[in-house]
Simulated assay, not measured.
Amino acid sequence: MSLTTTAEMAGAAPGPAETDDVTIVVATRNRPDRLAATVPHHRAPVIIVDNGSERPIRVPGADVVRLDSNLGAAARNVGAERARTRYVAFADDDSYWEPGSLARAASLFRSHPRTALLAAEVRVGAGAYLDPVSAQMAAAPLGTPPGAAGPAILGFLACSVVVRRDAFLAAGGFRPRLFVYGEEALLAMDLAAAGWRLSYAPSLIVRHFPEPAGRNQRARHRIEARNRVLTALLRRPPAVVARTLAGALGSHPAALVDVARNLPWALRHRHPLPPAVEEALRRLN
């Protein structure tokens, strides 16, 4: 993998920084139009990881890292490794953090040293409707531990979290083998297993403008099913693995071919979760 950087391109630059404690990392591929719409809203130093785009992406005022190939979600790891701030906020090329959110996130981290991840409230589209994942987090099924930054969570949307950089990297970041779709679950488990808190912080707001459905949904659902099974194989008890396999077989049987290809890797890296984390996941299921 070779890396090159540049800081010039026709188009708008990020806005004035509201904090120097957070770096925004954006992974993108072949969507310069989406970047042009969202980058001007960023209010912190920006690292853009060009995930093997067919044509190089250049953004004024940002540190652009060009990858030779598409690493999927693991491209975010490259940006986090390159960042020099204590905290890293992730964004997609179709999302941005509302003003004040990143400064508040830095303040929350300073006040809650056991917290490794803060998940924002996500507002979708021009109508700014509440994302269903945010609604689930707001319901606080795991409660709010005393002294926590917000309700405890064991899942998140990658484009709407700020992480403590050293904890994120120590946990391994996003696993390249999972590529995309459902890659967040394993990281959430591993951060919790390492003793960190993950919290929903609705005072932080992310605006998300996803494209209308048009991507290959069949392929996406197959990858999601594969990743659910691989994540279970990596961390969950045999009974959960069996149920997850059965679910994949019933809904996306082709995903089991993908699981079989990755089975030796999953078994080599299997580390069951601590009982407290497993119990919390059972409460969510």
Score class of each variant (00 low, 15 high):
residue 1 M to T: 12
residue 6 T to Y: 08
residue 7 A to D: 15
residue 8 E to W: 13
residue 10 A to S: 13
residue 11 G to N: 09
residue 13 A to D: 09
residue 15 G to H: 06
residue 16 P to C: 02
residue 16 P to V: 05
residue 19 T to E: 11
residue 22 V to S: 03
residue 24 I to F: 08
residue 25 V to K: 06
residue 26 V to K: 02
residue 28 T to D: 09
residue 30 N to W: 07
residue 34 R to L: 13
residue 38 T to P: 01
residue 40 P to Q: 08
residue 43 R to M: 05
residue 43 R to Q: 12
residue 46 V to H: 04
residue 49 V to Y: 08
residue 51 N to V: 05
residue 52 G to Y: 10
residue 54 E to C: 04
residue 56 P to C: 06
residue 58 R to N: 12
residue 58 R to H: 14
residue 69 S to W: 11
residue 70 N to M: 03
residue 74 A to N: 11
residue 79 G to L: 01
residue 81 E to L: 10
residue 82 R to L: 10
residue 83 A to P: 04
residue 86 R to P: 06
residue 88 V to T: 09
residue 89 A to K: 03
residue 89 A to D: 11
residue 90 F to T: 00
residue 92 D to N: 15
residue 94 D to C: 09
residue 95 S to H: 05
residue 104 R to P: 01
residue 106 A to G: 10
residue 107 S to G: 10
residue 119 A to K: 06
residue 120 A to R: 01
residue 121 E to A: 14
residue 123 R to Q: 14
residue 127 G to C: 03
residue 128 A to Q: 15
residue 131 D to Q: 13
residue 132 P to H: 11
residue 133 V to G: 07
residue 138 A to I: 06
residue 140 A to M: 07
residue 141 P to H: 11
residue 142 L to H: 12
residue 142 L to C: 05
residue 149 A to K: 00
residue 152 A to E: 14
residue 152 A to T: 00
residue 156 F to A: 00
residue 158 A to H: 08
residue 161 V to A: 06
residue 162 V to F: 11
residue 162 V to D: 05
residue 167 A to L: 06
residue 173 G to L: 03
residue 174 F to T: 00
residue 176 P to K: 10
residue 179 F to G: 00
residue 180 V to S: 12
residue 181 Y to M: 05
residue 184 E to I: 01
residue 187 L to I: 05
residue 189 M to R: 12
residue 202 P to F: 10
residue 203 S to W: 09
residue 204 L to E: 05
residue 210 P to M: 06
residue 211 E to W: 14
residue 216 N to K: 02
residue 218 R to K: 14
residue 222 R to L: 06
residue 224 E to A: 12
residue 227 N to C: 07
residue 228 R to I: 00
residue 228 R to A: 04
residue 230 L to G: 01
residue 230 L to R: 01
residue 232 A to E: 02
residue 232 A to C: 04
residue 242 A to N: 09
residue 245 L to K: 01
residue 245 L to W: 14
residue 248 A to H: 00
residue 251 S to F: 02
residue 252 H to Y: 10
residue 253 P to W: 09
residue 255 A to Q: 02
residue 257 V to W: 14
residue 257 V to C: 05
residue 257 V to A: 15
residue 263 L to G: 00
residue 263 L to D: 02
residue 263 L to P: 04
residue 267 L to E: 07
residue 267 L to G: 07
residue 270 R to M: 06
residue 273 L to G: 06
residue 275 P to V: 02
residue 277 V to E: 07
residue 282 R to E: 15
residue 283 R to H: 13
residue 284 L to R: 11
residue 284 L to N: 07
residue 285 N to Y: 12
